[in-house]
Each structure stands twice: as structure tokens, then as C-alpha cells.
Design a protein around this nucleic acid. Sequence first.
DNA 1: GTCTTGGGTAATATCGATTTTTCGGGCAAT
DNA 2: ATTGCCCGAAAAATCGATATTACCCAAGAC
Lengths: 231, 231
Amino acid sequence: MAKDVARPSTEVVGQEASATQKAYLALRRMIVVGELQPGEKLKIDRLRSELNTGASPIREALSLLTSDLLVERLDQRGFRAAPTSHENFVEILTLRCELEEMALRQSILNADEAWEDALVLAHHKMAREGRDDPEQFEERHKTFHMALLSNCASPILMKFCSQLYDLNIRYRYLAGNALNYQQRDVSTEHAAILEAAVDRNADLAAERLLSHYHQTGAFLNGLFTMKDPEG
Amino acid sequence: MAKDVARPSTEVVGQEASATQKAYLALRRMIVVGELQPGEKLKIDRLRSELNTGASPIREALSLLTSDLLVERLDQRGFRAAPTSHENFVEILTLRCELEEMALRQSILNADEAWEDALVLAHHKMAREGRDDPEQFEERHKTFHMALLSNCASPILMKFCSQLYDLNIRYRYLAGNALNYQQRDVSTEHAAILEAAVDRNADLAAERLLSHYHQTGAFLNGLFTMKDPEG
DNA sequence: GTCTTGGGTAATATCGATTTTTCGGGCAAT
DNA sequence: ATTGCCCGAAAAATCGATATTACCCAAGAC
């Protein structure tokens, strides 16, 4: 599924994924990391030449990103990167907490060995391979958090959580990137969440997960309001 | 100015909608009411001639419907209407209850006169104009339910609820259409929900809303398992 | 008789070009 | 001097066509 992450390079290998898929992944990455800034007009022609592809794949990729709330469609006037705002940030954080708590509790309720194993594995990979490459860490980090929820037996809820995760990560990049984020001792928090989850203690796991998000949220919130571009 | 974002929706269909917009609305309706059956292959050419438009608008509309979970994209084999299943139905019902309760409580917490007025109006329109035209009733019914949630100050949550609403309505059409549904005395239930909402009694309103959904759900569930097409 | 292989058919993904719409500057009228 | 209108340029939406890909059926081999 997430085997070959699209690189920003101009290299085009047409045999693996469809042009639309490649454009989708590339554009999503560019928006999430801030290469395409909030509110920026997304001109088809420019993106077309930048990604070395046709107009149709770009259009289709932008349509798909619309549903991820990363791109907005202006009727008859093309597309633009979704704008950001303080309210939007708070909304995402709040929703994320509520939906993930729901999913986590359900996951733990359905707990079985396979899930437990996958969880431990995801945590291990994040802790180990993440030290060197920050980009790898981001990937593993999302995998770990999704693994926590993956046993909730609700694909739709998972989709919502995944979307909100990406939206949130975008704010993290925008606030100033993941460097200062990693200064906080998130490893300890992750380990604590994992522990509670494998112990099948739903209350404790939920409490720790929410605390994790609230701390990250408060941290970013501070940065955001400090350099609020809206005034 | 910066607010006129045109996302395809059930709302106002401008006289000069784009071909994509028209195709999106038409296809969505066809899937929701079952003209296009679950799992059915959606051939571009056929739809193109059926809707009198080009291939590009169809493709783009199908892409948008993918994010509404009404259409699935098969890797390089085109599109098909999302399949249905008992699990999927239960999942939608469960999620809907949880998210709508969340939104309703927040809505009531933020209650003000404007919201109250809009709510009463929506209920009145549903009760009055809905008697004659079943299709009108569906429209008003959704408007009323969304009005209940609309004050939650969370556009994303609203979007989720709206999506789940459409997915649920699809099952209602598939189970055999809205006729037998209206036999139950839903008017009374709606009135009761409205009453609790305008009284700003969150607990009571939530209880009544969920009861409303659970009854409808159980009703459809019975029909569904009885004539389960999957066997 | 069943499995494999090869060709034919149909549908999709993509591209290039055309048409329609929008945006911005400049000119005229008040 | 300001406001409203018009025209040129640019961008987006759509259309028609092509090449690639997957699917299906038949023929031959084991």
C-alpha cells in the first residue's frame, strides 16, 4: 500500500504507479510539508511542468486532495492549497482527540495477539529507524499511531483519523519543523501509550494518548499564536 | 471573497454549474437511490453518453465520489459503485450515532437564537412540504438533521456527518424505499428531538436522537438480513 | 479432459488542442 | 478624481483521439 513513497525528483518511472497516483502522493507531500503554502494558488500548468506529467493527472490528483481537505476547489477558478487558521488548528486537534479515543478504546476491546504484535513491531521500528532520518521517523510515527487504532474494525473511522493526522502534521511543519518537536521526550510518552495498550487498559491508554496530543497541541498552539499571520 | 469555496454539495445548484459539478450530483444521486447498484462497474463510456457529457467530467466526478466512499477506485481497472455489506451498514450506523451525538451536544452548548430559528424553520419545512413529494422530504429531512448539528462550529465534523448520512440513506433506498420507512411515526420523534434541542437539554436531545437512529437502524437491519444479497 | 498460452477486443489512462471563462489594465464618461 | 466599461491576455474546463493495459476466449499441448 504505502510501499513506494513518491520522491520529489523529476525522475519518472511509468511502470509502477499510475500518473495520477504519483501526482497525488507528490502533491500531498508538497502541501503537508509546506512547499506549497496555505492559500497558494495551484496552477495546473506550473505543476504539470514541475512534475513532468499531463494536465489530467494533476487535475485528478487535486480533486482527490480536495476530499482530504488539503486542497480547495474554487468553482471555475481552479484550485488552491487549503488555507490555515487558528480555529482550523483547534478544530483538528479537538476532533482528533475525540475520534482517536473512540478508535483506541474499540481497538483495545477487540484486542488479540496479532494486533498486539503489530503494535509492538510498529513501535520498535519507529524507535529504531527513526533516530537517523527525520523523514523516516514521520512515516514510522504515523504507522505507529495508526496501528494503535487499527483494531477498531471500522475502516471509515480509520480513514477519518488518518485524514486528521495528515492535517495536523501539516501544522507541525508550518509552525517550524519537526526539530523542536523531537526535543520533547516523546519516546517516553509513546512507550507509555504502548504499555497501556498491550496491558489492555483502555482508560489508561486513552488518557495517555490524549495527554500526548494535548501537549503537542499546546506546544504548537503557542508557536502558532506567537507568529499568527492573520494578526 | 475568500469564502466562496465551491465544494460539490447537495446545496444550491447554480444555473451555470460546471459539467463536473453536474456529473457529480447526478452520479451521486444515482448511486444513493440505487440506480447504480452496489459493486456495479461504472464504465466511463456508458455514463458519458447517459449524462451527455465528456469523459473528463465523469472521471473527475467519480474521483470526488471516491472520497465520499460511494465509489471505489480499482487500481487500474476504472471505478465501481461501493459494495455494501452488513458490517458496513452497522459501522455506518454506529459511527453516525457517535459523531452526531458529539456534534449535537456541541451545537446545543453554542446555542443561540439564530440557530434556534433556523432549526424551527427546517423542521417546519420538512413537516409541511414533505407530505406530498417524497423526494422533497428526503431533502428536507437531511436539512433538518444537519441543522441540528450545524451549530457545532466544526466544519470537518459536519462534513463527516453529512457523508455518513448519505451512506446511510443509500442503505435505506436499497432495503426497499422510503415508503415503509414513513409508516413509522417519525414525525413525533422529530418533534421530540426539536423540542429537546430548543430547550437546550443536551442529554435529552442526544438520547432522543440516538433512539431515533437506533430504531431506524434496527428496522433496516431486519430488512437487510432478511434479503441479504451476499448470502 | 484440463491447463496453458497467445491473440483479439474493449476499456482505461493520458495527452494535445479547442472552447469558455476569468482576471487585470486602460480608457472614457461623469 | 473616481467610477464604470471594455478589451486583451491568461488560465481552466472540456473535448476528441491515441496508446497502453487488462480481460476474455479460443486453440493447442500435455
